[in-house]
Amino acid sequence: MIVARAPLRIPLGGGGTDLQFYSSRFGGFVLSVAIDNYAYVTTLQPSIEKGIRVKARINEYAENLNDIKNELVRASCHASGVTERLQITFSSDLSDGTGMGTSGAYTVCLMQTLSYLKGKLMDKKDLAEAAAHVELDILRRPIGKHDHYMASYGGLKLLRINKDGSVIVEDPPVTKKTLHELKSYLLLFYTGERRESSAVLSAQRELAEKNDGVRVYEYYHRIKDIGMRIHESLIHSDLIHFGELLHEHWETKRCLAGGVSNPRFDKLYQLARNNGALGGKLIGAGGGGLFLLFVPPSEKERVRSTMYQGGLEEVSFSYDWQGATLSNGFYSPRRSS
Score class of each variant (00 low, 15 high):
4 A>L: 04
5 R>C: 05
8 L>R: 05
9 R>Q: 07
14 G>Q: 06
16 G>K: 00
19 L>K: 00
21 F>A: 02
26 F>E: 10
27 G>T: 00
29 F>R: 07
31 L>S: 05
39 A>Y: 06
41 V>R: 03
41 V>C: 01
53 R>F: 03
53 R>E: 09
55 K>R: 12
65 L>A: 03
69 K>V: 04
72 L>P: 00
76 S>W: 00
78 H>Q: 12
84 E>I: 04
86 L>V: 07
86 L>S: 07
91 S>D: 10
94 L>Y: 07
101 G>D: 07
103 S>G: 05
104 G>A: 03
108 V>W: 09
112 Q>E: 11
113 T>F: 04
114 L>I: 06
115 S>M: 09
116 Y>S: 11
125 K>I: 11
130 A>T: 12
131 A>C: 13
134 V>N: 10
136 L>A: 13
137 D>H: 14
142 P>Y: 03
143 I>A: 15
148 H>A: 12
149 Y>P: 02
153 Y>A: 10
157 K>P: 13
158 L>F: 09
162 N>A: 13
162 N>V: 02
165 G>S: 11
167 V>D: 06
178 T>Q: 03
182 L>F: 11
186 L>W: 04
186 L>I: 03
188 L>W: 07
196 E>A: 12
196 E>Q: 10
201 L>Y: 01
219 Y>K: 15
219 Y>L: 14
219 Y>P: 01
223 I>Q: 06
225 D>P: 10
225 D>H: 14
242 F>I: 05
244 E>P: 02
257 A>T: 00
257 A>C: 01
261 S>H: 06
265 F>G: 03
265 F>T: 13
267 K>N: 11
270 Q>C: 08
271 L>M: 15
282 L>Q: 14
287 G>R: 09
289 G>F: 08
289 G>R: 09
290 L>I: 13
298 S>T: 09
301 E>F: 03
301 E>Y: 03
305 S>W: 02
308 Y>S: 11
313 E>P: 01
322 Q>D: 13
322 Q>P: 02
322 Q>K: 15
324 A>D: 05
336 S>G: 13
